[in-house]
Design a protein around this nucleic acid. Structure first.
Length: 261
DNA sequence: ATGGTAGAAGGTCTA
């Protein structure tokens, strides 16, 4: 089973690129972030025509996540637990259950950026990470084959940035952010890309500004975290770097895993 | 220190 995650930065601006990606890369499941669309405005039809089931959790103008799946999706949940006062669409999860195959619980997230830090946006990011940690602990305790993937807006370590010194005061790299990331990872999750590839210079995001792509001035902020039962099934994890060089690219590129499931 | 780019909008806000 191939599962891709892609911060698409606006589904309407990127629908042609997405359809081309789905046809060429053929993931069984695609997790999208920053669809920037309400559910009613999401272009489901051309995606369904490629054989995908579509579940969205959108909002107007900002944020928004979606799961595309060639297999049926069950028990769809929108939003993290303890949602009081959270009107930002950043979380959707569902189960992929196939006959004679292990069920996989798939969580798709768009973690808050948090800049500028300090400030209310950074406070919201840290509180969101606390709520994510609570859901993560439940997934570990359930001993399910499960994963949490998406745009974490976290640079886990200096090797995950081309110029780490440029990010020292940024919400994506502050010590408190990285500590919160480790607290979740240390519950028992495997960082799928890093466990298979120890090489530097592997990034998933390059800013549109300052010629970041041309200088390979990137950061690795899109991640797959796997429960132990899911990590047992991990066969491969790759970053589709070439997508940043396409016409009208997103500022992120897809990252995908292959599971023996 | 500033501004550089991009998307959803048709205001600025977010990143």
């Amino acid at each position: 089973m191939k599962i891709a995650s892609f911060n698409i930065n606006g589904i309407k601006a990127r629908i042609a690129l997405l359809l081309e990606y789905l046809e060429k890369s053929a993931p069984d499941i695609a997790l999208l972030q920053e669809i920037k669309s309400i559910d009613e405005g999401f272009p489901r039809a051309p995606i369904e025509d490629l054989g995908y089931n579509v579940e969205t959790h959108g909002q107007k103008s900002f944020n928004g996540v979606a799961i595309l799946s060639k297999f049926p999706l069950e028990d769809v949940v929108r939003g993290l637990p303890e949602p009081q006062g959270d009107d930002q669409a950043r979380w959707i999860e569902a189960t992929v259950a196939r006959r004679n195959n292990t069920a996989v619980r798939i969580c798709n997230l768009y973690l808050p950026n948090g800049n500028p830090a300090p400030g209310p946006k950074y406070d919201y990011k840290l509180d969101w990470m606390r709520r994510l940690g609570a859901r993560a602990r439940d997934l570990i305790d359930s001993e399910q084959v499960a994963l949490m993937a998406g745009d974490y807006n976290v640079i886990p370590s200096p090797v995950d940035a081309h110029d780490p010194e440029d990010w020292t005061t940024d919400a994506l790299f502050l010590p408190e952010t990285r500590s919160a990331w480790r607290r979740i990872e240390n519950l028992g999750f495997t960082d799928a890309f890093r466990t298979l590839n120890r090489e530097p210079m592997n990034y998933t995001f390059w800013d549109y500004q300052r010629g970041a792509w041309q200088k390979n001035d990137g950061i690795r902020i899109d991640h797959f975290l796997l429960t132990p039962q899911c990590a047992d099934l991990l066969k491969d994890c790759q970053i589709d770097r070439h997508m940043r060089g396409e016409t009208k690219p997103s500022d992120h590129v897809p990252i995908w895993i292959e599971l023996d499931a």
